[in-house]
């Protein structure tokens, strides 16, 4: 029964996320509203991590396999890609590493600055 209760809590927050997404005319999907609501509820101690941990760990661990079916759809939209395949591959590779570098370097520079200030004080 423990897992049923945990699943119920998770489904409840997912539903609340869905409701917010329907009410608020922003391009934010239900999953992100639900995530923010659950995070808020945990921070405000409305629920405890123990009330959902087993089930939530199972769900986050299975995220990768959930990507398989949507990708299989590619077999129907492949012709849109095929003509520009080399360009698309180049764009994906270059932008992924550039994003990683920019994000990492900026964050690290700011953290180092803060550390330096603390050492001086």
């Amino acid at each position: 029964m423990k897992y049923l209760y945990q699943a119920g809590m998770i489904v409840l927050f997912t539903f609340l996320g869905e409701a917010l997404a329907a009410l608020i005319p922003l391009p934010i999907p239900a999953a992100i509203w639900g995530l923010l609501l659950l995070f808020l509820a945990l921070c405000l101690k409305l629920i405890r991590v123990e009330q959902i941990r087993g089930c939530s760990g199972f769900l986050t661990a299975m995220l990768p396999v959930l990507f398989v079916a949507p990708t299989v759809n590619l077999m129907e939209q492949a012709q849109a890609l095929l003509g520009s395949l080399p360009a698309v591959i180049a764009i994906i590779a270059v932008s992924t590493f550039l994003t990683l570098m920019v994000t990492g370097r900026v964050t690290q520079a700011l953290l180092d600055k803060k550390k330096g200030e603390r050492d001086h004080a």
Partner: peptide, 19 residues
């Protein structure tokens, strides 16, 4: 029914954040 789990699974990313 399986792909349906994508939304609750994303919601659960709140747990590692909180921890």
């Amino acid at each position: 029914p399986f792909s349906w789990l994508m939304t609750p699974a994303t919601v659960c990313l709140a747990v590692p954040l909180y921890e």
